[in-house]
């Protein structure tokens, strides 16, 4: 076989284009979940349950869109449901001797299970989809037009990452979240209710994760089934560490993971078909590489909130 006889006369450019397009298409759920988790973790708590929130968000958004005919109503309901899951996590965590990591795992199973239960009736019907903006309409190339078909939620997520980056540094609320996350003693001394701040931060994280789920079921891949997330919520939680709790870096990391996921199919489509399992592992290899490259035996992870992972 001629190996690299390339389709569409674009040659290897088509791989680059596919990776860019894939980064834009696939990254949005990663982005929303990791931004949500950044808020939560900056306040000193870990919510591993966001995978369940993502799946429930996807289901509730799809179901709402089917029932009301409005995709945006679906996004709203998904955000609301996600917020409730977050508040539940935050509320149970204030009880004595509750471990936030263990609770997160329980909520992950609870969220997915509940989504499967209520989602049964919505596997078959088709829901209206979220709109996308054709940024590539200037181009004659179908591939470019497809890659630059950008969903509104992606743009909102991008803007949100800049806003959160700014807000965590420059606003009073951002400062309070960071103080609570870095030292409960200092926060209490200043008169802040630590549990309440964390409750709200976990709730906000849940809202974003729910919206990330809405993107999955209402835009890309744009359908509801029980395997829709395939672990993206968990990967996004790991992305937060990778991005060093920095919302701007979350945006970059989400794009990187989205693009890396598109690499395997894109390479196969231009004839590089050997070892596709290896290409599919690209995002994970990437994570390992970056974590090793930036690790140090001498100091803790830069940017890690001081209270994170402390046992009660």
């Amino acid at each position: 076989m001629s190996g690299l006889d390339l389709p569409g006369d674009l040659g290897l450019w088509s791989v680059l284009l596919a990776v860019i397009g894939g980064a834009i298409r696939v990254s949005t759920p990663f982005l929303f979940v990791s931004l949500g988790e950044t808020i939560t973790e900056r306040s000193g708590r870990i919510n591993l349950g966001l995978e369940g929130t993502l799946v429930f968000g996807a289901m509730s958004a799809y179901a709402t869109a089917v029932l009301t005919g409005s995709a945006w109503a679906g996004v709203a309901v998904a955000g609301l449901a996600g917020g409730l899951f977050g508040l539940l996590h935050g509320w149970i965590c204030r009880l004595p001797r509750v471990n936030d990591v263990a609770l997160g795992i329980a909520l992950m199973l609870f969220g997915s299970g509940l989504a499967f239960l209520f989602g049964k009736a919505f596997i078959q019907p088709s829901a209206p989809q979220l709109p996308a903006i054709p940024f590539g309409s200037w181009s004659d190339l179908a591939q470019v037009r497809a890659a630059l078909q950008i969903n509104v939620l992606f743009l909102i997520g991008a803007a949100l990452s800049v806003f959160l980056w700014w807000a965590l540094r420059n606003t009073r609320i951002g400062l309070v979240v960071r103080i609570v996350g870095d030292s409960t003693d200092a926060a209490r001394a200043m008169g802040y209710d630590v549990d309440r701040v964390r409750l709200l931060a976990t709730g906000a994280g849940g809202v974003l994760a729910g919206i990330g789920g809405a993107y999955l079921s209402l835009y890309y891949p744009g359908s509801w089934n029980e395997g829709i997330s395939s672990g993206q919520g968990l990967m996004a939680v790991a992305l937060v560490v990778f991005a060093r709790w920095n919302p701007l870096a979350c945006f970059g990391a989400a794009l990187l993971f989205g693009g890396a996921g598109a690499l395997g199919p894109a390479l196969q489509s231009v004839g590089v078909s050997q070892g596709y399992y290896l290409f599919y592992a690209a995002p994970y290899v990437l994570t390992l590489g970056v974590l090793i490259a930036t690790s140090s035996p001498n100091h803790a992870l830069a940017g890690a909130p001081g209270e994170l992972g402390h046992a009660k």
Partner: peptide
Amino acid sequence: AVKEAEATN
């Protein structure tokens, strides 16, 4: 699901 959509694209 996501990989199937990527492959189709």
